[in-house]
Design a protein around this nucleic acid. Structure first.
Lengths: 277, 277
DNA sequence: CGCTATCTTGAGATAAATCAAAAAATGTGG
DNA sequence: CCACATTTTTTGATTTATCTCAAGATAGCG
């Protein structure tokens, strides 16, 4: 099922949910310690995957497995008729993978790790059966199902945005910053995605993504060097995400005319940029 | 909750599921008569709506209601930041409305009837509670949730198609023909949607939709007069839906060079076209 | 240190948007 | 039932954001 030998299962030492740093955003969210333990007992095993490993591929038989992401990030994608890849979802810590496979015999998409990741494996029938006598789990599952439906709808809206920069701004606001340091004065993150992957998600080409990122940098809204990204002007980004046409410099955000303050990529005094990983 | 007085509830004579023509594609699908009766008992009331009536609007408080479509069609839509409407779903007989509102306080979208319609109202908590002791219902619910997730993913792919005609061909193949007469030699249907609504779904403009429909008619693949549509060349339509570039006449489908046989809209002998409704 | 994958940048092509106006259908009230 | 207003649909001319093709630059890796 896994493509590389490095992604061996780890049945010997499954970290219990109660000690998992993802607990707050995963299935046991809002649960007390006792209930949390019950969820732990439902984990069949944990899997470690490295960047590029496939959790599941197109046309593989569905075997009633759900996975909760303990750490890392994943992309789900399918190829259209001409082989153009199309990324349908990015999932990160706490997200559940496999909810859309209940009525399927074989997977219609593939899911692979964007970086080294760990997932907890569940049996779907076992989870459902447990939920019958475990209201907290049932509520958690329903909530997640409904939420994912809402997220897919949001993606539908994202792809329909008029301008590429609006797409990217929304992508940054909603998706990419989940794992970032929210408290930083100048938030920064390491994109786990290539320009091509961002393009496949936003329905653009890699060239357009590059040009658009360059433009946002010229405007002084973000500062990018390859996969390292800093957000310099959050209000301006939100205005662009909200539909403000980005071509007009300075007029987008009155309090954010950073255009000339950060002309290009220059390490600013007192701020240590993330070293390459 | 409803916009017009004509959409009164009809608690006096709720048609039981066992006698509903939608039974086979609705919640009681695959159930025996006894289980079907149990589902019937969960229906709080039925509502009749006329074209344009709102089942639910943006920002209305969510009150734990789900609706099953007994007859008719609905569209769900939201407006983006500039007021451009964006249709996120078309639902027809047997579909459930409200599954995505579990974790919401207020609706993020609106749902209105595209034609005169009837829906059955359920209480979501009551449905969930019933499902705990009613495996058939639980399975039906899970299956539907998962299926709708898959459909939203399909929509994501649809919107990303390269060409407008490919979008429309897929739209026709997957969505519009549900209610049509599948056995007809020349399938025909009445579009419940305006060009504008089709455009809002496919992420196009009404002008483009019109032009594209005209082009498909020139190619002899469909035959359209306002809302009345006939499919003349199903294989060709599927090839376009599959990504075959539609500009090239005749080469799309070897067995479907109808271009000159049906040059424009002409009633064909022996075939009675639907009279205006 | 070279090799490969990824990223940047440019010039030209293009599908669809926009703007605009006319034609056809639909609805309304006298 | 017919004039009238409104909505929907068609069609044209022009503009534009993005794609495509292509070449060069940079980073990452063995």
């Amino acid at each position: 099922m896994y493509e590389t030998s490095s992604s061996a299962s780890d049945a010997a030492s499954p970290l219990p949910c109660s000690e998992c740093s993802t607990r707050g955003v995963c299935l046991p969210a809002e649960m007390n310690d006792a209930d949390c333990g019950r969820v732990s007992g439902l984990v069949l095993q944990q899997h470690h995957l490295v960047r590029g490993d496939a959790l599941q591929g197109v046309n593989e038989p569905v075997r009633g497995r759900w996975y909760a992401i303990r750490s890392g990030q994943f992309k789900s994608f399918q190829a259209d008729q001409h082989g153009k890849p199309c990324i349908t979802r990015f999932a990160s810590e706490g997200d559940l993978l496999g909810l859309d496979s209940l009525d399927l015999d074989r997977y219609t998409d593939s899911t692979t790790a964007l970086c080294d990741s760990t997932v907890c494996e569940f049996s779907y029938p076992q989870l459902i059966e447990a939920a019958r006598h475990f209201p907290g789990l049932a509520r958690s599952l329903e909530w997640r199902l409904s939420k994912q439906l809402g997220q897919q709808q949001e993606l539908g809206l994202l792809v329909r945005c008029d301008y590429a920069e609006q797409k990217f701004a929304q992508f940054l606001s909603h998706q990419a910053w989940k794992g970032g340091d929210q408290n930083d004065h100048v938030p920064q993150l390491h994109l786990a995605l290539s320009r091509k992957e961002i393009a496949d998600y936003l329905d653009l080409t890699h060239a357009t993504v590059t040009r658009m990122i360059s433009h946002l940098q010229e405007l002084g809204i973000i500062s990018v060097r390859y996969r390292q990204l800093r957000l310099l002007d959050r209000p301006a980004l939100h205005q662009i995400a909200a539909g403000q046409h980005p071509a007009s410099k300075g007029s987008a955000s009155t309090a954010s005319d950073n255009t000339d303050h950060h002309p290009a990529w220059q390490p600013m005094p007192g701020i240590h940029f993330l070293s390459p990983e």
